[in-house]
């Protein structure tokens, strides 16, 4: 495929930035005591997105050599990439202001935070539509990818924020009981969406079937089964369910689960980008 690992990294960190921001919003709304978790989410969101934008620019070589051409990205509103540029522009500005306010120890106005939340959801979703506008690639050109990427963005961002928040203040982190059931619901949803993606792609001709074969039995099978499914979904779900039964959770288990979600979230983008196979129209 023409798009490689750099685009996969971008799709992952852009989604994780959105998820981090939304997690911080939820925490600030529901758990005023969860200071470290909130700060982590709000500060890391623009940093993650900046890393992603760097990847995009490095991948677009002609633009890299003539940086002024990147201004043209605003030019064609019929292109999902241009729409994404609008979304990133709004979200990045809001996320930066929020991060600065957080660093200065000032309150973030609720209205501004909500604008950021809407931007974050759009950011997570557009990455699915970006791949979806390629009518020659059955694995991408379907309606499952946007919700799958949104769900994975939320879990990835939540995991990154949880890891940092828990590292700084585990006692406070344990009080945020709502994060665990949210993760369980999202992880189950993600499994269903991945199944739907495979079923739909496999029914879309030779290219779709080849994509599914690459993922399930071919060169990407280890990354898919061990990485995305095992480490990213089943292991964290198992740890979550185990922790829900006891009143106290083990910090090491929690860290393992969250790390697994992050690794799985990246690998999901990586295998979806890598398994894109173009139809041959003859």
């Amino acid at each position: 495929m023409v798009w490689g690992p750099m685009i996969a990294v971008y799709l992952f960190v852009a989604g994780a930035a959105a998820g981090s921001y939304l997690t911080a919003s939820l925490v600030s709304f529901k758990y005023p005591g969860g200071v470290f978790t909130r700060k982590a989410g709000r500060i890391i969101a623009p940093i993650l997105l900046a890393i992603g934008l760097l990847m995009l620019m490095l991948d677009a070589e002609a633009g890299l050599r003539n940086p002024l051409r990147f201004l043209g990205l605003f030019a064609n509103p019929r292109s999902v990439m241009t729409i994404g540029t609008y979304i990133i522009s709004v979200f990045m500005v809001v996320a930066l202001i929020v991060a600065v306010l957080e660093l200065m120890g000032k309150n973030v106005p609720r209205a501004l935070d909500i604008v950021g939340d809407i931007g974050a959801i759009c950011l997570a979703g557009y990455t699915g539509f970006l791949l979806g506008d390629s009518l020659g690639v059955p694995l991408w050109h379907n309606s499952v990818l946007p919700p799958l990427f949104i769900v994975s963005a939320l879990t990835s961002g939540m995991a990154i924020v949880s890891l940092i928040g828990a590292a700084f203040d585990y006692v406070e982190f344990e009080k945020m009981g709502v994060l665990r059931p949210i993760h369980i619901v999202l992880a189950v949803l993600e499994i269903l969406l991945i199944v739907a993606l495979l079923v739909i792609a496999s029914g879309r001709g030779a290219a779709g079937a080849e994509s599914v074969a690459m993922l399930t039995t071919g060169s990407l099978a280890p990354a898919f089964w061990i990485g995305v499914v095992g480490i990213g979904l089943v292991l964290p779900l198992a740890i979550d369910l185990f922790n829900m039964r006891s009143t106290k959770s083990e910090a090491s288990g929690e860290a393992l689960a969250q790390t697994g979600v992050v690794v799985g979230g990246f690998l999901l983008r990586f295998v979806v980008v890598s398994a894109g196979v173009m139809m041959v129209l003859l």
């Binding site: 798009w3 995009l56 991948d59 677009a60 633009g63 043209g72 990205l73």
Partner: peptide, 14 residues
Amino acid sequence: CIGCKYCMVACPYS
């Protein structure tokens, strides 16, 4: 052209 390759991804004729 910035070389983003979106057109290459979108062209069904490669």
